[in-house]
Design a protein around this nucleic acid. Sequence first.
DNA 1: AGAGATACCTGGGAGC
DNA 2: TGCTCCCAGGTATCTC
Length: 276
Amino acid sequence: MPELPEVETVKRALDKRLPGHEFVKIDTYVPALRFPLGSLGDHALLHRKIMAVRRRARYLIVEMEGCRALLLHLGMTGTLRIVPAVAPRLKHEHVVLLLENGDTLRFEDPRRFGFILPCVLSAPGVDPKELAALGPEPLSDDFSAEYLYQAFKGRKTRVKTALMDNSIVVGVGNIYANESLFLSGINPLTPAGKVPLSQCELLVDNVKATLRRAIDAGGTTISDFKGVDGSEGKFVLQLNVYGKSGEPCPKCGTEIARVAIGGRSSFYCSRCQKEQ
DNA sequence: AGAGATACCTGGGAGC
DNA sequence: TGCTCCCAGGTATCTC
């Protein structure tokens, strides 16, 4: 399941391969992913030199000359790979983008939670308007303890839900939210507004550290994620609590608890992560 | 406006 | 073996 480190891994691989090339044909094999694919195949995106591949939150932006771009999201199960055009199409490869050099960029997504949207940029290097409401990048200096404390202030929603709110900070999904809260000793059920500044400092540090470690490891592989070359991420080996209900806490040995927060599975140690 | 619930989707695993 | 049921979860959208 791609979270920010996985998307960053894909972005780095694509940015090495795509710039300088251009799409000459786009084939779609289903009418829609999360959004209809209808406008992809025609006109505006073809025969434009690809300038760069960028990432914002969990979105990928393939920027082309003339302020055109492809906005991609991998959703839950999306993967991108670059293979020769002659390679047989896999069952869930819903979009095949042919490059002028005979390679294809292929979007595979069994659950179809991802999307590919054509968009127009107001200027080169600028994010599309579709991404305007996003909060700061977690690895940027804008994501600081003071910022998070202010963003949480007055919020009654659970700290875990708030940490996964893209308007507060982007790219922190369920796995990393669970892990960061564990490392910070914060109970995920705590109302966001009750987390003191001192714990916001710990939380910000641990979100950054967890994401950086995961990026270094090439992403977290639970079952679906693969890099552009098909390699699996290795971060799953470093998880402390995610998916480990009933197992002993790595710090104190207490059984890891599982509870649903906002409909999502949440894992924590009731001893190391006391509720406020 | 903030908070919570729901829909979207399908493969994989558990249970019978 | 084969069926049904439940779960995974980011995001948009709905309701209260």
